[in-house]
Design a protein around this nucleic acid. Structure first.
Length: 560
RNA sequence: UGCCCGGUCGUCUAAAGGCAGGACAGCUGGUUUUGGUCCAGUCAGUGGGGGUUCGAAUCCUCCCCGGGCAACCA
């Protein structure tokens, strides 16, 4: 951890506190157990903060363990990205990097132990056939005809499964539990299947792989995990988790605890859907700044601190919920308001001509780098007769409460002079405003009038001859509706994709911004927070991503 | 219609039989050289009916609503 964050409290903390008070454990051990079949998203970040946070809070440790028991879906690319993301979020697994695949031999031995105990059998039924035998929630199942295969035969068949004598799906090893259990997961679940597949770590040394339900509890027990924290959908698996550990000679019996996964408005969180967006090139990749992936948020400009703050604020419960993405945005604004240096950048430029300002003259005015941080100092900002201002900061016919430029109204050019709007030049055909005109008061250098008169509006600007062209991407939410998952019959979450989620423009900004290095964040005054894209920028040629816009009480009330 | 889990301001979440509180969002006002920030204020909630109790968001009961579970995925 980068810094100590204040302790949190929720039902899992309470449970562990109780266990500690009762002297149940020498040391608390949790784990973050991703399957390397996709990139981590903000929901995983919640789990990471929870597991690593708990370990830290109780003076224990948290392992990073890859649950790589299904070679057909997994890949080293994912392993590496996941390690990067966990590290970036600020967590350290030290020397405890584990892989389920490292336990394959042990798990295989446990499977034989289960067979020997008469608690597992090799089943010849196909998946379709077993589906019939399993029954439905309202009707008990019927035993597989192979349920009472003799132990010796089971052992022989299982060994031959491992030896590669059979093809995929020909046999499966099942736990022998209760075909009439109201919990479907207890109706003789498959625990080992044959898969002649190349594993990204064990290569071709195995052709049988353990199923999640069999493997996960063993992985936890082998490592000595005390609290095995997972999401709500595994709640119905807990009886199986416990049953298995009770049957086998494992070193310990970890406690599975379930919490509600994170859902966020205006996004999708399932790996399947995120993968689809990547595969179909709807987005640029897993790290597209619009993606809720950790790498996407990172490229978007979110900081690890802001994501951890978010995870702290959302809490941990068992209530299914949908968190407003505004809370995430609040967290990054809160941090960047305090830390990000400011700059003036005009996103949608229109020329402003100061009619009484000498042609050819350049003045360098002091721009405050961060009003929230006096230590940040000031910088020189070039001021000239022709400037660029935001097109939206001028209205020829404006409502009374429009504090910006309109004919006859005086406004402040931030850190510059007070100017009074005299009118505008328009294209006689289209009516488009080509330039706004004004006069300045030479007595107001820096922005204050000696006579004490006040202006309501302050606008940002850049010098036309002294500014730089800056490529900027204005990101918006990827989906247009709060719940893209909530789709009517026959529809798809993709129907809700926002066609305007990435507007690419060339803005006019202070020339010094050309020197901004990749990954550096700053505030474009009156606009939002931006970061220099790590991938698409070159030294001296930054490309800016908008992280989040500033709150805008004017725009909010006057949209269209 | 089987089993499991869950229902507290719009949203997320506290209150472990004793004043329903915070954060986000919204709204109002103040300050302000960012219509930002900050400050003050405000709106707003225990799904419903019974019961236990001096006292119930909390315990019991019935109902209602939401989610999960029938991969050789995790």
């Amino acid at each position: 951890m980068v810094e100590k964050e204040e302790a949190v409290s929720h039902f899992i903390v309470d449970m562990i506190e109780k266990d500690v008070a009762e002297g149940r454990h020498q040391q608390i051990m949790t784990r973050f157990p991703p399957e390397p079949n996709g990139y981590l998203h903000i929901g995983h970040a919640k789990s990471i903060c929870l597991n690593f946070g708990l370990a830290e809070q109780f003076g224990g440790v948290c392992n990073l363990r890859f649950d790589d028991t299904n070679p057909t879906a997994e890949d080293v690319e994912y392993v590496e990205s996941i390690k990067d993301d966990v590290r970036w979020l600020g967590f350290d697994w030290e020397d405890r990097l584990y892989f389920a695949s490292d336990y394959f031999e042990k798990m295989y031995q446990y499977a034989e132990e289960l067979i020997l105990a008469g608690k597992a059998y090799v089943c010849t039924l196909s998946p379709e056939e077993f589906k019939e035998y399993r029954g439905v929630p309202t009707r008990p199942g019927t035993p597989s005809p192979w349920r009472d295969r003799p132990i010796e035969e089971n052992l022989d068949l299982f060994r031959r499964m491992r030896a590669g004598e059979f093809s995929d799906g020909e046999y499966v090893l099942r736990a022998k539990i209760d075909m009439s259990s109201p919990n479907l997961h207890m109706r003789d679940p498959a625990i080992y299947r044959i898969k002649h597949a190349h594993h990204h770590r064990t290569g071709d040394s195995w052709c049988v792989y353990p199923m999640y339900d069999f493997a996960h509890g063993l992985e936890d027990a082998i490592e000595g995990v005390t609290h095995s924290i997972c999401t709500l959908e595994f709640e119905v698996h807990r009886p199986l988790y416990d049953w298995l550990l009770d049957q086998l000679s494992v070193p310990c019996h970890p406690q599975q605890i379930e919490f509600a996964r994170l859902n966020l408005t205006y996004t999708v969180m399932s790996k399947r859907k995120l993968l689809e967006l990547v595969r179909d090139k709807v987005v640029w990749g897993w790290d597209d700044p619009r993606m809720p992936t950790v790498s996407g948020l990172r490229r978007r400009g979110y900081t690890p601190e802001s994501i951890r703050a978010f995870c702290r604020k959302i809490g941990v419960t068992k209530m299914g919920s949908l968190t407003d993405i505004a809370l995430l945005e609040h967290c990054i604004r809160e941090e960047l308001n305090a830390s990000a240096p400011r700059a003036m950048v005009v996103l949608d430029p229109v020329k402003l001509i100061i009619e009484n300002y000498p042609e050819g003259q350049v003045e360098y005015l002091d721009g405050v780098n961060n009003p929230e941080d006096p230590e940040a100092g000031t910088r020189p900002v070039a001021f000239t007769r022709e400037l660029y201002i935001e097109r939206g900061d001028f209205m020829e016919e404006a409502p009374k409460k429009f504090f910006r430029l309109k004919p006859g109204q005086e406004v402040r050019l931030r850190y510059g002079y007070l100017v009074t709007c005299t009118g505008c030049e328009k294209d006689p055909v289209t009516g488009e405003v080509l330039a706004v005109t004004c006069t300045y008061d030479p007595e107001t250098r820096g922005g204050n009038a000696p006579d004490g008169r006040r202006v309501k509006g302050t606008i940002h600007w850049v010098s036309k001859p002294e500014c730089a062209d800056l490529p900027v991407r204005l990101f918006d939410r990827l989906f247009q509706v709060e719940q893209p998952d909530d789709v009517p019959e026959g529809g798809s979450f993709r129907d809700y994709l926002n066609p305007e989620s990435c507007e690419q423009i060339v803005a006019k900004g202070e020339a010094m911004l050309l020197d901004t290095e990749a990954g550096v964040r700053c505030q474009f005054e009156r606009n939002g927070y931006f970061v220099v894209d790590e991938k698409d920028s070159q030294p001296g040629k930054p490309v800016f991503n908008r992280i989040v816009p500033l709150k805008d009480s004017w725009g909010r009330q006057h949209k269209n």
